[in-house]
Amino acid sequence: MAPSRTTTVKSKHAANKSGIKNSKTSSKSRSSQDSDGVSKSKSKKQQSKGAALGSATGKGQGVKKKRRVYTEKELGIPALNMITPVGVQQPKGKKKGKVFVDDRESMMTILAMVNADKEGQIESKMMKGRQMEEIREARKAEAEKRQEMRKSKLDETKDGLRKKRKRAGAKGEDGDAGAQEALAGTKPLKKRKSVSFA
């Protein structure tokens, strides 16, 4: 149907917001105009045409065929501008509420799983403990060995020194015994100072 040009429009922009004649908004605005008294003549025309059509097609067609109205759930459209946290989102068709474990079989299964888990943990702990103990033992043994070596080295040097001293003593037995003693540090080189009281 061609747009009627008889309507009185106060402002050009008010009538057709989009500015396109056959766009959806323009048709909407037209229908909204129908409600106010401006385009009465047109609505009358439409009514009369509808009635004519009804009479032409037969009886019962006067009642408009109802279009099925779909709810949002039926369409399965995701709700806009809504953030549903991951934990909150429930899968469809899942039963609400808690699932209790009360039968013996399922409890036994859980128990077996937990026991196996714990057993493994204890075993690994013991293994680790044993390994650590071995390492500690080895380190201790090594430290002892090192201590022993150091001790033997010290003894060796001590013996060496003693031998050297003996040999030196044998060479100049009565020659300079005083010097020998001085070397060993047993006798002071200088004469000791003495104080006498009158």
Binding site: K98, V99, F100, V101, D102, S106, M107, M108, I110, L111, A112, M113, V114, N115, D117, K118
Partner: peptide, 24 residues
Amino acid sequence: RPLTEEETRILFAKLANYTGNSLK
């Protein structure tokens, strides 16, 4: 109420710290 599966698991795990296989 009875325990849920997770609660049962947590309880058994705690008890298994102190007990051996005889827990069953």
